[in-house]
Amino acid sequence: MDWEGRILKTVGLVLLIAAAGVAGLMVIEGWSFVDALYMTVITISTVGFGEVHPLSEGGKLLVIILIIFGVGAYIYIISIVAEYLVAGALIGGIGRRKMKKQIEELDRHCIVCGYGRVGSEVAIELKNGGVEVVVIEKDPERLKLCAARGYLYVEGDASSDEVLVEAGVHRARGLVSAVDSDAANVYVTLSTKSLNKDIFVVARSERADSEKKLRAAGADRVISPSGIGGRRLASQLLKPAVLEFLDVVMHSADIEIFMEEVKVKQSSVFVGMTLVEAKKKCLEDANILAVLKVDGGNMDVELSADTRIEGGDMLIVIGTRAQLRSLEGLA
Rank of each mutant, 00 (worst) to 15 (best):
A19W: 02
V163A: 03
I68V: 14
V201D: 00
L13R: 12
R108T: 04
R321D: 11
E4T: 14
L16K: 08
S120H: 05
D254T: 15
R108V: 00
R173M: 14
V41R: 06
G95Q: 15
I64L: 15
G5I: 11
D107K: 15
K213L: 13
I288G: 01
I103A: 01
I80S: 01
C113K: 00
R173V: 04
V294A: 13
S226C: 11
I44E: 01
C282N: 14
L8S: 11
A184G: 14
L90R: 06
R97T: 10
A147R: 13
R96V: 03
A253I: 10
V271F: 08
G130W: 06
R108Y: 03
V264P: 00
I199M: 03
D157C: 03
A36Q: 09
V71F: 10
P225H: 12
V276L: 06
G218D: 06
G229E: 13
K263V: 11
G168A: 05
V249T: 10
V165G: 09
A123N: 03
Y151P: 00
L303E: 13
L90W: 08
R171D: 06
L275T: 05
L289G: 05
D198K: 14
G329L: 10
M250N: 13
C113D: 02
S45H: 02
S235I: 00
G50M: 13
R117M: 12
P240N: 08
L303G: 02
A183V: 08
A123D: 10
E277T: 00
A73P: 02
L246H: 09
K197N: 14
A286Q: 02
I136K: 01
T10N: 15
V118S: 01
R215P: 02
S56D: 10
I136Y: 02
E256L: 06
D295H: 09
A82K: 11
N185K: 00
S268W: 08
G59E: 04
Q323T: 03
E166L: 07
V47H: 05
C113F: 01
E284C: 03
K144N: 06
Y84P: 04
D285M: 14
G119Y: 00
Y187G: 00
I223E: 02
A178V: 06
V294Q: 15
R108D: 14
R6M: 12
T320K: 10
I255S: 05
V242Q: 12
E302G: 03
M1R: 12
I7T: 05
L61S: 11
V63M: 13
E29C: 09
E132I: 01
R204M: 12
L303V: 12
T10M: 15
K9G: 07
V154S: 04
F33C: 03
E244K: 11
R308L: 09
I103K: 05
S267L: 06
V269M: 11
F270S: 00
V262R: 07
V34C: 04
I28S: 02
L62Y: 07
E166Q: 12
A234D: 11
L289I: 14
L143Q: 01
E141N: 10
E328P: 00
G58F: 10
L283F: 09
S210A: 10
K197G: 08
F69K: 07
I257T: 11
C113V: 14
E284R: 13
A178W: 10
I78A: 15
L15C: 07
K9A: 15
L15R: 08
M259R: 02
I103N: 03
S326D: 13
S120G: 06
R96L: 07
G92A: 08
V179P: 01
K213P: 01
T189F: 07
A184W: 04
V86D: 11
V41K: 01
